[in-house]
Amino acid sequence: MHGPALSGWLLMVLCGATGAYCLLRARDSTARERGSARAEALMGFGMAAMAMPAALFTLPERTWAVYAAVFGAASLHAVVCARRGGHHLHHLVGSLAMVYMAVAMAPGGGHPGHGAGAAGSGGIPVITGALLIYYALYVLGSAGQLIPAPAPAGGGLTAPAWGARPELALACRLTMGIAMFAMLLTL
């Protein structure tokens, strides 16, 4: 990822923690929610790996092709699952954005001479701009849903397991949306 090392470290930790929580959430969820949690875990870990600062570990050149292949397969899976509705269209956009960033960040990808460790911009500005707009709208729309609903009177209901709390799942999606926006800004 282009940009300051500190932002890379912060994005790596944030996305890795989000991916780990999504894996834990997959244990306490229904079958339908489990698939979404796994897709979000893949996205979180993939974003963490992509945001890894070069000072920590220099990735081999073929890594970008692996990212593109993994997230290309995730895109195909999201297309198949999108017929069932739910959050899969967002997963499709996210997976395609990861493929786009992997190609743009690859050595020789995007613009000549702008590989993973080079300063400057990569990618196609129109596509990057469209993805930035999508993620900005997604983050703004998701942030409004985090306002908690009033607690029911009586207090007889038990809280769901911490891994199955819908507000935490939404917070993870919001976190990854913000992280994707930040990563796209660095292209």
Results as ranks from 00 to 15, higher is better:
1 M>T: 05
1 M>D: 03
2 H>R: 10
3 G>T: 04
4 P>V: 12
6 L>T: 07
7 S>F: 07
7 S>A: 12
8 G>R: 06
11 L>P: 03
13 V>L: 13
14 L>R: 00
16 G>N: 01
18 T>S: 15
19 G>L: 04
19 G>T: 06
20 A>T: 09
20 A>L: 15
21 Y>N: 10
25 R>E: 11
26 A>F: 07
28 D>W: 11
28 D>R: 08
29 S>A: 15
30 T>V: 03
30 T>E: 04
33 E>V: 07
35 G>W: 11
38 R>M: 12
46 G>Y: 08
46 G>F: 10
49 A>H: 06
49 A>W: 08
50 M>I: 00
50 M>Y: 03
51 A>L: 02
51 A>M: 00
52 M>N: 01
53 P>S: 01
54 A>F: 05
54 A>M: 09
54 A>G: 04
55 A>I: 02
56 L>M: 04
58 T>F: 00
59 L>D: 00
60 P>A: 13
60 P>H: 11
60 P>V: 14
61 E>A: 15
66 V>S: 09
66 V>R: 04
68 A>F: 07
68 A>Y: 02
68 A>C: 07
69 A>H: 00
71 F>L: 11
71 F>I: 06
71 F>S: 02
72 G>E: 12
73 A>W: 06
75 S>C: 08
75 S>D: 08
76 L>F: 11
78 A>S: 15
82 A>W: 06
84 R>E: 15
84 R>S: 13
85 G>W: 13
87 H>C: 07
89 L>D: 03
91 H>G: 06
96 L>H: 05
98 M>E: 06
102 A>R: 01
103 V>P: 00
103 V>K: 02
104 A>E: 06
106 A>H: 03
107 P>V: 06
107 P>I: 08
107 P>C: 12
108 G>N: 07
110 G>V: 05
111 H>Q: 02
112 P>G: 12
113 G>A: 11
114 H>I: 15
117 G>I: 10
127 I>H: 01
127 I>T: 10
129 G>N: 14
130 A>T: 09
133 I>S: 04
136 A>E: 07
138 Y>K: 07
139 V>F: 03
140 L>C: 15
140 L>G: 08
142 S>L: 12
144 G>T: 08
146 L>F: 03
148 P>V: 12
149 A>L: 13
151 A>T: 14
152 P>F: 00
153 A>F: 00
157 L>F: 05
158 T>W: 05
158 T>D: 09
158 T>L: 14
161 A>D: 14
162 W>Q: 08
162 W>R: 15
163 G>L: 12
163 G>T: 13
164 A>H: 11
164 A>L: 11
165 R>K: 13
168 L>C: 10
168 L>V: 15
169 A>I: 12
169 A>L: 13
170 L>Q: 14
171 A>E: 04
172 C>H: 09
174 L>S: 13
176 M>H: 05
177 G>L: 02
177 G>K: 00
179 A>E: 05
180 M>S: 03
181 F>R: 03
181 F>Q: 02
185 L>R: 09
